[in-house]
Amino acid sequence: MDQPPLSVEPLLTMTGIAKHFGGVMAVQDVDLTLGRGEVVAIVGDNGAGKSTLIKVLTGVHVPDEGVITLEGRQVSITSKRASQALGIEAVYQDLGLVDTLDAAGNVFLGHELKRYILGIPFLRNARMAEEAARVLKENVGIELEDITVPTHNLSGGQRQAVAIARAIYNTDLKILVMDEPTAALGPEETRNTLKLMRRLKDQGISLIVISHNLDHVFAVADRVMVMRGGRVAATLDCKSSTKQDVLAHIIAATDGNVAA
């Protein structure tokens, strides 16, 4: 497959990734490289294997074949915990929020701040509320009027901000995976999200973004990887290609090296 020149040192490489469910090949022979502070968009039709690929990276699915290296070392990502420990976090399409919990409860979900009294873990709710407000303000650029309301009372953009705050609260965040980050947002909130993505990139965090919206892809991504039928159809540099090029690959317009 084609290797576009990388301007930055590769942070992550995924090589020859394959995953099947029963008889169905979800992804097959997929290669992906990601540089430090680079934004790679993955596009493709429904069922092209995008979600499966990122779930392999985030430890939800264990690949049947393939090698993943992070910072030059081969890693095995067998669980969500393992991927988090490596600095990989994901914000999913449904945001993965527990909407009956407040923002702080969601930001800290799974790694709550605790204080042990007689060996019994107690939640430090006040401290978590403070910290969540700080992270939301400083890293995500959003201030909630009331941090204690359940997140189902928040707007789509605010909820996404909470989901992202949760991902970046992981202090050693290297790679953030975003699945359809702008799909459920209005125009203003979409602009804020794109701004936020550039902000994360400036902080040296690498992003993998799944999106159907090529305008948004070209607004933030450095490279676009097109997937079709579980394989990589093409990887294009955003600066030297157009939306039409990407579209052509998505809909499988005649292209010699695709079928191989």
Binding site: S79, Q84, G96, D99, T100, L101, G110, H111
Partner: peptide, 14 residues
């Protein structure tokens, strides 16, 4: 609360 509110999210957060 997390498991009852969104089991999948609870699983995904480990």
């Amino acid at each position: 609360v997390a498991i009852g509110g969104n089991t999948e999210a609870a699983v995904l957060t480990g």
